[in-house]
Amino acid sequence: MDRFVGQARLEWWANQSTCLEMYDIDIAVTVDSVGTLRATGWHAIALDKTQREGWDFLMEMDPHFSITFPGEDRGGIMVRVDEAENGTLSLTEAPDWNGSVNVTFDLT
């Protein structure tokens, strides 16, 4: 796959067996000469207030998602997602992401 334009799904996994949320996105993907995935996308359907709060929470906790393309049951490519102010999503492959996150909650 050198280029893909279509829909995909971002999945945020808490662990290997628990997917907390899935987001359908429209996406344009390219793969460079060394096989690195780069993509730009946006949410396929505008997020309502509750979905936006969930998205923002997950993005703040850890912006790494698994990406699933049409015909796949479960994504195997980990990506880091960055969101611009206009809602455009930039996805870069995160092959060295080890699944661990250091999270601090302020309960005061």
Rank of each mutant, 00 (worst) to 15 (best):
R52F: 05
V103C: 08
L91K: 05
N86V: 01
F57D: 12
K49N: 03
D26V: 10
A8I: 04
G71T: 02
G87H: 08
V101Y: 06
A14K: 15
P70D: 02
L37V: 05
E72V: 07
D96Q: 11
E72H: 07
E72M: 11
G71C: 05
A94N: 04
G54H: 12
E72G: 03
N86K: 06
D24W: 12
R9I: 12
T104Q: 14
G99C: 09
M61V: 12
G71Q: 08
L107T: 14
E72K: 06
T108Q: 09
G35S: 04
F69Q: 01
L107F: 12
A84D: 15
N102T: 07
H43G: 00
I27S: 02
N102C: 09
L89Q: 06
A14H: 14
H43V: 02
V34K: 12
R52E: 11
L10I: 04
N15D: 15
E53A: 15
G54W: 09
F4E: 01
P95D: 07
W55F: 14
R80L: 08
V31R: 15
S90T: 14
W97I: 04
L107M: 13
W12D: 03
W55A: 03
W42D: 02
A94Y: 00
K49R: 13
R38F: 06
T40V: 14
M61T: 14
S100I: 08
T36G: 03
G41M: 06
G6W: 11
N86A: 04
V103E: 03
P95N: 07
R38V: 01
T50W: 11
S100C: 08
D2F: 07
E83K: 06
E21C: 02
D26M: 12
I77L: 11
R80K: 13
R38Y: 05
T36R: 11
L91T: 02
E21Q: 11
I45H: 12
Q7M: 11
R74A: 05
E93I: 00
M78A: 02
E93N: 02
I77G: 00
E21R: 08
N98H: 05
P63N: 10
M22P: 02
D73T: 11
L58K: 09
R80M: 12
T88N: 04
G6V: 03
A46K: 11
I45K: 14
D82K: 10
A28R: 15
R52I: 00
D24Y: 07
H43P: 05
D106W: 08
T92Q: 13
G71S: 11
F105W: 12
S33A: 15
L47D: 04
T88M: 15
A84L: 15
D2C: 03
L107C: 08
F65N: 01
R9M: 13
I77N: 02
M78I: 09
I45E: 10
A44N: 09
E11K: 01
E83H: 03
A14V: 13
E60Q: 13
S66P: 00
P63R: 05
A39T: 00
H43C: 07
S90Y: 13
V31Y: 12
D62G: 10
G41E: 04
N102I: 08
K49E: 11
P63L: 06
H43K: 00
G71D: 05
G87Y: 09
E85G: 07
S66E: 01
